[in-house]
Amino acid sequence: MADLGLEDFEDTGPSGGHDDDGDKAAADLAPVFDVPVNISAVLGKSYMSVSQLLKLGAGSVLELDRKVGEAIDIYVNNRLVARGEVVVVDDRLGVTMTEIIKSEDSNS
């Protein structure tokens, strides 16, 4: 997957993408571009006792709390921000975001 900078995204503001204030706002964000964040794509969860965990080995099947085809949760710094689908990109797994979660909805 390619690294994308802010300039790779089209501005869809009310002025049609030619807003000098938008360019200024993007420049104001420059100090945070290199701040690392932890991104997790959670396929599902499972709860078990330590004794059950110790019985797992190669070939064991771990049942998750999701159904086949159900969206996965995408977390940034342990905060739910989106849901998406698993995709394959050049023999690697990736995630396509299908829904952005508003901050007031992410407390679930």
Rank of each mutant, 00 (worst) to 15 (best):
D3I: 08
D3T: 14
D3F: 13
L4Q: 06
L4T: 04
G5H: 10
G5S: 14
G5W: 03
L6I: 15
E7W: 08
E7Q: 13
E7R: 12
D8C: 12
D8S: 12
F9L: 10
E10N: 13
D11F: 08
T12N: 06
T12G: 10
T12V: 10
T12S: 07
G13C: 11
P14V: 10
P14S: 11
P14D: 01
S15R: 09
S15G: 11
S15P: 00
G16F: 13
G16Y: 09
H18F: 12
D19E: 04
D19F: 04
D19G: 09
D20A: 12
D21P: 00
D21G: 07
G22V: 06
G22F: 01
D23P: 01
D23G: 08
D23M: 12
K24R: 14
A27T: 13
A27N: 06
A27R: 09
A27G: 01
D28E: 11
A30P: 07
V32T: 08
V32C: 01
V32Q: 09
F33N: 13
D34Y: 03
V37D: 02
I39G: 03
A41P: 01
V42P: 02
G44C: 08
G44E: 03
K45T: 06
K45N: 09
S46V: 14
Y47W: 08
Y47V: 07
M48R: 11
S49R: 03
V50Y: 10
V50W: 01
V50C: 03
V50A: 10
S51P: 00
Q52P: 10
K55F: 00
L56H: 06
L56S: 04
L56Q: 06
A58T: 03
A58P: 08
S60R: 03
S60Q: 12
S60N: 11
V61A: 15
V61K: 15
V61I: 15
L62C: 09
L62S: 11
L62M: 11
L62N: 11
E63R: 15
E63N: 13
E63D: 12
E63W: 10
E63F: 04
R66F: 02
K67N: 09
K67V: 11
K67Y: 08
V68A: 13
V68D: 14
V68M: 14
V68N: 15
G69I: 12
G69K: 12
E70D: 15
A71E: 06
A71V: 03
A71H: 09
I72M: 13
D73P: 03
D73L: 01
D73V: 06
I74H: 00
I74P: 00
Y75Q: 11
Y75F: 13
V76H: 07
V76Q: 06
N78S: 14
R79G: 05
L80W: 07
L80Q: 02
V81I: 12
V81S: 04
A82T: 04
R83T: 02
E85N: 07
V87R: 04
V87T: 11
V88F: 09
V89T: 07
V89D: 05
V89Q: 09
D90V: 05
G94D: 05
M97K: 08
M97C: 01
I101K: 01
I101M: 13
I101N: 06
I101W: 02
K102L: 05
S103D: 14
S103C: 02
E104K: 14
D105L: 07
S106F: 01
S106Q: 09
N107E: 14
N107H: 13
N107Q: 05
S108E: 15
